[in-house]
Design a protein around this nucleic acid. Structure first.
Length: 361
DNA sequence: AACTGTGTTGAG
DNA sequence: TCAACACAGTTG
């Protein structure tokens, strides 16, 4: 795996498929904090952020770079990036999608040199997704990955046909790969709470998502891409937290919880394609969809607190899962109310703190 | 505490 | 349209 200095999304270009899954090391903390500043310069001036040489790229206080494009008198934020170049490339992608093939960009135009097949595919890819979808990919840093996926499915489906069928991913496109179930987890209140992380049961984590020594100790972890049934790609930071001795999905997780309106008691399922690619998949099923037979058992959670096992039994009742995105006030009975929920979160947090002290690794 | 990205403004 | 700047709101 070669990831040199490259940024996340660029690196995804090279993430060829080496089992058990494709991973990307999390960008190193090589960010240059606020400009050190001229030893000689004027103090006041030294606080100014360095402007970018690229169009659509703006500096961030922490040394990173933001990308933005304007449309209809409004700014559309494209995300923040470690590399100025990556931000510039993201702007370019947005510019092409928003303003067409001839949009002014920072780097070369697509199809400039004899309309390469690759470029043609990217144009088709852009056209087959809405502006919002493209922006979403850019903000999540999954654009390169998704573009590459569509290329794969295109090749797999046979290059004779036209681009559209396989490129119009969204639906069941070329996503018929055989998958194997890795594991499932009924999410806890803290998994969908303000901790913004999902704890992966250790056994499953070590079996399916082994971390290399470096990543484990550095706690920086790696980036994993998962696809859901809608073909949407989710990128999560996956790492090991020494303090709680647990494996977790962090960055990106809260976004998933929010969009899926995930609630405590729902079950998230992890799968992996069995082919060469080893793509990862993530989906979930609402608590209310639990299979009757199992439902009697599954939701019971055992929380170990200070050496004592505490049983938690969710209240199966009224779980009007707001079909849409509307955040239904309360659902399911892990707790009787919001406040209660918070307490549970705090408790589980306390647990980990305790472990840290006692576990004294 | 750190970071993101929005609000706002003025230049081009 | 665009970037500079400040900082509120969000995430870690």
């Amino acid at each position: 795996m070669e990831i040199s200095s490259t940024d996340e999304s660029t690196a995804s270009d090279s993430i060829s498929i080496s089992p058990p899954y494709s991973t990307l090391p999390v960008a190193s903390p090589s960010l240059s904090p606020p400009p050190p500043l001229a030893d000689t310069g004027v103090e006041a001036e030294s606080r100014k952020l360095p402007s970018s040489k690229y169009k659509g790229v703006v500096p961030q206080p922490n040394g990173r770079w933001g990308a933005q494009i304007y449309e209809k008198h409004q700014r559309v934020w494209l995300g923040t990036f470690n590399d100025e170049d990556e931000a510039a490339r993201s702007y370019d992608v947005a510019a092409r999608r928003f303003r067409g093939r001839d949009a002014v960009t920072n780097f070369k135009k697509l199809g400039d040199t004899g309309e390469s097949v690759e470029d043609g595919m990217e144009v088709a890819f852009l056209e087959s997704h809405s502006k919002a979808e493209i922006v979403d990919m850019l903000r999540k840093h999954t654009y390169r990955y998704e573009l590459e996926q569509s290329r794969r499915s295109y090749r797999a489906t046979g290059c004779d046909g036209d681009l559209s069928p396989s490129l119009v991913s969204g639906g069941a496109g070329g996503r018929g790969d055989a998958r194997e179930q890795l594991f499932e987890k009924a999410v806890t209140p803290s998994d969908v709470g303000k901790l913004n992380r999902l704890v992966i049961p250790k056994q499953h984590a070590e079996k399916h998502f082994p971390l290399q020594g470096g990543a484990t100790s550095s706690s920086k972890g790696i980036l994993l891409n998962f696809e859901d049934d809608g073909g949407k790609v989710w990128r999560f930071r996956y790492s090991y937290w020494k303090s709680s001795q647990s494996y977790v999905l962090t960055k990106g997780w809260s976004r998933f919880v929010k969009e899926k309106n995930l609630k405590a008691g729902d079950t998230v399922c992890f799968q992996r394609s069995t082919g060469q690619e080893k793509k990862l998949y993530i989906n979930f099923r609402p608590w209310s969809n639990a299979v009757p037979a199992q439902s009697l058992i599954r939701p019971v959670q055992i929380v170990r607190l200070f050496g004592v096992n505490i049983l938690k039994i969710p209240n199966p009742g009224i779980m009007a899962k707001g079909g849409d995105g509307v955040a239904v006030g309360r659902r399911g009975g892990w707790c009787s109310g919001r406040k209660r929920m918070r307490e549970v979160d705090l408790l589980s947090f306390e647990c980990s703190k305790k472990q840290m002290v006692v576990g004294a690794l």
